[in-house]
């Protein structure tokens, strides 16, 4: 499920000026496919402004998300890798982002479950950090299933 939802939502870039910008860029595929609205992007940024960097779920990896207050039209996920890491509040360096858009708190658990398998597999994560094409990311995810 994770691989299916990520297809076409995987992007790579070299550098971004701010963490706010990284969330905007990472969310752009979901925005253009009308999975989310501009409000949801703002909600995700606000979430970090208010609650700090708890969305940095593992060293180097952020999962921007927020509560769905109408900004999520369809459950989805997107991937962005930034070559030179971006600094989040509390001095956290991030170079991989998974933007999560969940319609409600239970409908996407299969997706979360796949994501969890991916993130706790250290070998796969190491390879992910060196991936630089969509096919590579997808085949890494598929290798888990």
């Amino acid at each position: 499920m994770l691989a299916d939802l990520l297809k076409g939502n995987i992007y790579f870039t070299d550098e971004l000026p701010t963490w706010e910008e990284s969330i905007k860029v990472a969310a752009a595929p979901l925005l253009s496919k009308r999975f989310i609205t501009e409000d949801y992007v703002q909600d995700m940024i606000k979430n970090v402004q208010i609650n700090g960097s708890y969305i940095v779920i593992a060293p180097g990896i952020a999962m921007p998300h927020a509560q769905n207050q109408g900004g999520v039209l369809k459950t989805g996920i997107s991937f962005l890798k930034v070559e030179n890491s971006v600094t989040y509040p509390e001095d956290k360096e991030v170079n991989i982002l998974f933007v999560l858009a969940a319609e409600d708190s239970n409908g996407h658990l299969e997706l979360i479950s796949d994501l969890s398998s991916l993130l706790i597999d250290e070998d796969v994560m190491e390879q992910l950090k060196h991936a630089n094409a969509e096919e590579e990311v997808i085949s890494l995810i598929n290798s888990l299933e």
């Binding site: 979430n47 708890y54 969305i55 927020a66 769905n68 969940a102 979360i112």
Partner: peptide, 10 residues
């Protein structure tokens, strides 16, 4: 977590 959908679910 704040939303009960993302990080806490993960």
């Amino acid at each position: 977590c704040d939303a009960g959908a993302g990080s806490s679910a993960l």
